[in-house]
């Protein structure tokens, strides 16, 4: 199982409207392919943090990973 958390307005891409959910682990699934699966356009994504660490879209997801997906931010 892989934990996924969608931040802020990315939650609208979750089927159930949940910000946090789990998905089944699949071999060789990258963060980019996870976005496709969730139908989130990559342009909407500002960054991925996996197990507390920044990762790029080519990161290969491991079983039991905890993935946070943040939208593009414009700064503070």
């Amino acid at each position: 199982m892989v934990k996924v958390k969608l931040h802020l307005h990315l939650a609208r891409f979750s089927e159930m409207g949940n910000k946090e959910f789990t998905i089944n682990y699949e071999e060789n699934m990258t963060l980019e392919s996870l976005l496709k699966k969730l139908r989130i356009p990559i342009e909407e994504v500002g960054m991925f943090v996996v197990n507390g660490k920044w990762q790029d879209k080519n990161y290969i997801i491991l079983d039991k990973d905890s993935i946070e997906i943040f939208p593009v931010y414009l700064g503070g």
Binding site: H7, G46, V49, F70, G75
Partner: peptide, 11 residues
């Protein structure tokens, strides 16, 4: 702008 607190904390 407080929307970025969680994200800056996460990195």
């Amino acid at each position: 702008t407080a929307q970025i607190v969680n994200a800056v904390n996460a990195i």
